[in-house]
Amino acid sequence: MPPSLTDRRRLGLGLVAAAVVAPGFAHAARSPQAEAFIATEGQKVLAMLGDRGLGEAARQARLTQSLDALADFQRISSFVLGRHARTLSPPQRQRFNAAFRSHVQRVFLRQLTAYRGSLLRVTGSTARSPTDVVVNTTVRGSSGDEAVNWRVLGAAGGFKVADVQARGVWLAITLQQDFVSTIDNAGGDVEALIRRLEAGKG
C-alpha cells in the first residue's frame, strides 16, 4: 500500500527535524542592535520605493535621504577605489564622490524597483567584531523570498551600512573590482573612471 499523505508529512517533518538538530553549526554572537537598525532603516527604503503617491523627483529626494541615513558613503567611496584611493587629488576626490553618489542612487533606484512593496524580515546576524556585523534578512517580493545580507559597521546609535549582499555577491566589493579594473585598463588614470561616471556611463 502506498504511504498516505499523513505518513509522507511525518517523514518530511522527521527529515526537517533531523536537519535542524544535526550537529555542525557554529553559533557566532548576534547583534540585536544592528538587526534592529536594519529592520527599521531597510524597511523604510523598501516602503518608500513602494509609495506610489511619490513623484519621480520626490522619490529621488527621499532616496537620497534614506541612503544617507543607511549607508556610509564616505567609507564606501574610498573602499571602491581600492589601491587607487590614495592617488586622487582633493579636486578629483570631490568630483569622484559626487559622481559616485549619483551613480549609486541611479543604480539603486533602477535595481530596487524590483523590491517595490516587499517586506524585509531579519533572520539573524553575525558579529564579526563589536563594530562589524553582518545582518541576514529575507526580502519577500512577488517572486518569492530572497536572502539579502547587510554589512553594518559602527556601534549602536552610529550604525551605517558599508555593503549589501544579494545572490552571494557583495555590491561594494563588486564595484571595487569594476572600478579598479577600469582604472588599471586606463593605465592607472583615475580620470578615466571619473569621466565615465560623470557622463552617467557605467
Binding site: D72, F73, R75, S77, S78, A85, R93, N97, R101
Partner: peptide, 9 residues
Amino acid sequence: FGDEPQGDP
C-alpha cells in the same frame, strides 16, 4: 573597509 576614509563625501 578601513578606518580613515578620505575627504568630503
